[in-house]
Design a protein around this nucleic acid. Structure first.
Lengths: 225, 225, 225, 225
DNA sequence: CATGAATGAGTCTTCATTCAT
DNA sequence: GATGAATGAAGACTCATTCAT
């Protein structure tokens, strides 16, 4: 009887679902604590508390504190990589300006959607294991960018992967400046446009086709000395 | 003789010199530990140990751990800001390409001179107080950049401070990629040239003087397009 | 059976009871250490050790060393204030001699019941926060005394609160002399009687009703003379 | 030659005088620090600093911190004992009321002349060695009191030492209440008068001569129940 | 004798992790 | 599986005391 009742309840809330819910609660709590208190104060006890579970339970879902923080960071970075992949896929085959716009817009949008979370996670990425994860997702994103740049009809890059990497890396600092408050949040549209201009100018310059092919396309090139 | 020798020795190590030596030993040790073990493991005990002094001595020179780390970070950042100010001063009045080159070269050179130290200090800047210091020196550097851009004869920027900030921030990500090992160290010259191209292209684009306007200091706002 | 036994055991030590036991063990240990080693040596480590728990546990029950000492002091002082309140309540409406006796007896009894503890706590009250606590409980006790003196039929005090305060304060020194060993412990009954005499003499003198005034509630200020 | 010069200088400021001055400076500094910062913060370094000498010098004059604090406490207590001895000597042979007045007045005056100092020293007396010193000077003072009470013409105490001790101890609490701020400082004259009344009443009561000898001297006696 | 840099044992406190219930 | 009390290693920081100069 008792067993049956339990089973029925379990059917409505299957074990895995409840597990998943708890796991997600802990995950969310970790982000909250991270944002409000910083990495140092983001202790397992505090996270469990905010998640409404016991520390013991936390350890049922994450083998240790580092694993929890890694999971949080991983999801954050994966989200960004996914968003960028999608955006870039849509821009495939379009001219540089559009690719640049897709790149800049998708990065800024995802990174700045939850600014506090993004900010908090910088500190997490300094902890052990952060670098590798960033490296992994950077590679993935760079691949998407390179693919896109190869198909841009108005440029011909000698090394799309390389140029794409530079272009992507160039976005990191400005975004961080926004997150750190060096650049006001109402300037986000302005900075977005500015970065699009920058990337477009850069990629156009390094990807300009041989003289005679696109002679009248622009005049930026001869400024590069 | 013995007395003379003692006196001479004493002259080499008078009170202030000994203090200074100890202080510097601690400072250096902090950087060492930071590089080898990371911020988390960079404890007062460990630093004192590597410096060959007691914890007590460390606290005679730095009021607390944060102050020590802040001092290390401060010296690092100040060095960079100084180097950039100098380089930019030399480039004042020269064309954009030269300003870009000065900006990129000075930043890369100082930042990559001691790559391990630079790397280690990223984590330090996440700790309490790091943000403010970065903000302060960022402002100083941005002022130098803006000053330089205003004098560049071949461009007319509607907002030199803003464009300079974007240009500077764009360097941060790529440099970090080198430090993190995402970009091989033998690629440093290549990335330097690439960044010079990028900044020059960007600044030329946003600072492009419409034909016929060069002689009249007209309203340049519509150049940002 | 095994299960039942376990359940019974568990009933004896449910969560709250175990917690309470630990808390009390720490409390008791603190007093022990205080008595044997003094405040200075009453460190969190030593207390935890004597309580048979880890330092960590101590901090689960008391936020810091001061809070622990404050708790010990508080319980001690509260106990005294309670005992005196009760004794004085019983003496309400009785003549001065009885009030004095109640006052003296209750104070001596509670203070000297655990002489070593009382002694040890003097040093605690010097530490941060001790003064306030003493002040608070002094006020409470003085109120009880004043209430009692107002109802004594054979005296009419111009300012019962003031006289009560003096009377109470006068007990502090003698009690301390006993605790410090200046007065032998077998003299306690003698000192008690002596103090009763003193307080009675004092209160009678300052509360003496002039012949013929007993029936009229006149101005009694000139009795303090 | 150099020796002669040194000797002459020394004659003007004899070694012992300078030593004495330094010692006193340290002593005074200790009291200052004690008052402003409390015992815990009264460290050898801080005292030396305020005294304008080096820690090393401090240790030339006092073997260790405890000795320094003991010296400070000793001088304080000795000063009080001296003042009381003098006052009591003057009151010798006079009636109880005068003896009480002398006792109370001298104690209050010396104890409250530098209230902050007196307050600060309570904490010192809790440290190791304080109790013994207090005991020693208490004995000395009690002897002076007893001597005085024996000569009072209007009372005949069965045990002057005992009654004197009670009388003296009764002053300790009230004085402390003033120092702790429980009793306002402008109430000092009032409390002095009150305490004189209390001691006089007490000593008169316990020292009353047999009926028939001083029958009309006072009427306090029959109030004692 | 004076100095004050150096020492290091000893405090308080935190927190990741475990395990009996 | 859940709980949360218990653990104890480790970290930051202080301060009495010494000793080379």
């Amino acid at each position: 009887m008792g067993a049956a009742a339990t089973t029925l309840k379990a059917r409505k809330f299957p074990v895995q679902d409840r597990s998943k819910a708890t796991r997600e609660a802990i995950h969310a709590a970790a982000i909250q604590v991270l944002m409000r208190e910083g990495v140092r104060q983001c202790t397992t006890t505090r996270v469990a508390e905010r998640a409404g579970v016991s520390v013991g339970s936390l350890y049922q879902y994450y083998p240790n504190r580092d694993a929890l923080l890694a999971a949080v960071l991983s999801e954050h970075l994966t989200g960004i990589a996914d968003a960028m992949s999608n955006a870039l896929a849509s821009a495939c085959g379009k001219p540089v300006a559009d690719v640049s716009a897709a790149l800049v817009t998708s990065f800024l949008e995802t990174k700045l959607r939850n600014p506090d979370e993004s900010s908090a996670l910088y500190a997490v990425s300094e902890e052990r294991g952060g670098a590798e994860m960033i490296a992994r997702l950077r590679v993935r994103t760079l691949a998407a960018i390179a693919r896109c740049l190869e198909c841009a009809p108005d440029i011909r890059l000698s090394n799309p992967a390389w140029s794409g990497a530079v272009a992507f890396d160039a976005l990191i600092g400005p975004v961080r400046s926004v997150l750190e408050g060096h650049i006001a949040r109402d300037q986000i549209p302005a900075i977005r446009d500015e970065l699009i201009v920058m990337l477009t100018a850069y990629l156009t310059t390094v990807g300009r086709v041989k003289p005679g092919q696109l002679r009248f396309a622009g005049d930026v090139t001869d400024n590069v000395a």
